[in-house]
Every structure is written in structure tokens, then in C-alpha cells.
């Protein structure tokens, strides 16, 4: 008889996703590598940035959206590079026009260039405006449980605290606060930023996160496609370990083999 617990799909704002790994599209060598890595990751949700079009460019130049077609993936435009609520809201509205009314966005409003740490004051203001304007807002934030709850109260459909600084690969630096966020949350919680390698992703899932969003950990691995594959497995393994509910920790040893019947007894 199967002992497997049936998992439910990740559900964000009524959208259901088979994969709990969400990936970015930055820092790859070219669009071929982007497409191959994303395919290997098994991700359903793929985030991208919105920037001014280079004018005078080759009209036949490849387009990112050819590598990650909206027909195959759920695209998640982000507001990376925005430092004010106003710019983030403008960027989301441009993205909605770009994607013919698609209203799921990743909101991030940054505080400074050195840390790319979220400016939560601006983030809260932008979240409120965007939700009122009909967007489904997945929000990048600090690992502050109070801020996470305030974002949820403003109608964000997912809260995405950082594990560590964007692009740092330092993993989960504050599991204690992440645990509090998870305990309080009534919307999906995804770790966004800081993942460095597969064990970081697995740990986030073992702790009960609903998903993980990453970019650099895959794109900046020496072999991105292989790392994407590793991340897919890490997310699945971590999720299954969470559902299976780990054994209790003990201070003393507990033999796995019985004492009875030892030859020296």
C-alpha cells in the first residue's frame, strides 16, 4: 500500500502550478541556455524584467519571450531595478500591457544598490496601489514577520522573503524569522533571493515554504542546466521531506540495530 501523501499543487491567486520552483531569466549566456536551463528546472512560473527597448536595434534580434513563450509558461514580470513605489507601479502597468492584460506580477522595490535590500515602506505603498488596480501581487520583501503580515493584509497573493541578499548565494541566513513568517502566513510563502545551491532550496522546502524563486543559483553555476536539474530535485525532495514530517531531534544516540541477540551478550 502506498504511504505517499498526496500533495496539493502550489496555488497562487487561484492559479495552480505543478512545480514549486520558480525561476528567473537573468545572467544567462544566451537565450538558448536560458531556455535549456528553464526546461531542466521544470518550472512553470518564469520571471523577467521590463526595460527600455534599444532603439535602432536589429529588427530580427531574438526576443526573450521567444525563448520562454507565454503559451508554455506563466510569465511573472518583475519590478527589479525600481527604487520607488511609483516606478514599480508604472513598470507593472507596462508589463500588463506587454502581456495583453496578464495581471500576475512580482513586486520588488529596492532600497540601495549595495544590498538590493527591499525598501519595505515603498513596497507596502506599491502593493496597496497594485492590488487596488487589479493586480495579483507576489511580493519580494525582507524576512520581517510583521512586514510580511502587513503585505498579506494589503492583499498580496504571495509573500516572498529573502533568504539572503539578491545574487549573494548565501542561502537562508535567518531561518528563525522565516519560521515565524511561515507560522503566521495565510498566503503562500516563497523564498526569493539568496539561494546558492541545492541544499539551500531543499532546506526552504523542508521548513514548509510553499516554493522557492531563484535565478543566480542556476544561471551562475558553472553548468546551469545541470544545476537547474539539481534544483528541481531539491525542491521535490525538500517538499516530500516536509510532508513526511521529519523525525524528532534527540540529544543522545538511539541505535538503529537491536541490542538483543548480540554475539557478545
Amino acid at each position: 500500500m502506498s504511504q505517499l501523501i498526496q500533495d496539493t499543487p502550489l496555488t497562487v491567486a487561484g492559479r495552480r502550478f505543478a512545480s514549486r520552483l520558480l525561476v528567473g531569466t537573468g545572467k544567462y549566456r544566451d537565450f538558448d541556455e536560458t531556455a535549456a536551463a528553464i526546461e531542466a528546472s521544470g518550472a512553470d512560473v518564469v520571471t523577467f524584467a521590463v526595460r527600455r527597448t534599444n532603439l535602432g536595434q536589429n529588427p530580427d534580434e531574438a526576443n526573450l519571450l521567444d525563448a520562454i513563450p507565454p503559451s508554455r509558461y506563466t510569465l511573472l514580470p518583475n519590478t527589479a531595478g525600481c527604487y520607488t513605489a511609483k516606478d514599480a507601479v508604472r513598470t507593472c502597468r507596462l508589463a500588463r500591457e506587454l502581456l495583453d492584460g496578464h495581471n500576475l506580477v512580482k513586486l520588488e522595490v529596492l532600497g540601495d544598490d549595495k544590498t538590493l535590500y527591499p525598501n519595505v515602506v515603498e513596497t507596502l505603498a506599491a502593493a496597496e496601489t497594485l492590488v487596488n488596480d487589479g493586480f495579483d501581487v507576489m511580493v519580494y520583501t525582507s524576512d520581517d514577520p510583521i512586514v510580511a503580515k502587513e503585505l498579506e493584509k494589503r492583499g498580496c497573493c504571495a509573500v516572498m522573503p529573502l533568504g539572503s541578499l539578491i545574487g549573494s548565494g548565501n542561502g537562508l541566513l535567518n531561518p528563525a524569522t522565516l519560521t515565524i513568517i511561515l507560522e503566521n502566513a495565510e498566503v503562500p510563502v516563497l523564498v526569493d533571493a539568496g539561494i546558492g545551491t541545492a541544499s539551500d532550496a531543499a532546506l526552504a522546502m523542508e521548513m514548509g515554504c510553499d516554493g522557492v524563486l531563484m535565478n543566480s543559483a542556476i544561471a551562475h553555476a558553472r553548468h546551469p542546466v545541470m544545476m537547474a536539474n539539481a534544483m528541481r530535485k531539491a525542491i521535490e525532495a525538500g517538499r516530500e521531506a516536509f510532508l513526511a514530517e521529519r523525525m524528532p531531534r534527540r540529544q543522545s544516540a538511539s541505535p538503529s540495530s537491536p541490542f538483543a541477540g548480540r554475539i557478545n551478550a
Binding site: 531569466t25 524584467a49 526573450l64 514580470p77 518583475n78 506587454l98 539578491i166 535565478n215
Partner: peptide, 10 residues
């Protein structure tokens, strides 16, 4: 006038 498009990002 601002004209934008999608580019790689995380």
C-alpha cells in the same frame, strides 16, 4: 514616450 520590452531578469 517610453517603449519597453521583456529582458532577462530575476
Amino acid at each position: 514616450v517610453e517603449i519597453v520590452h521583456a529582458i532577462g531578469g530575476g
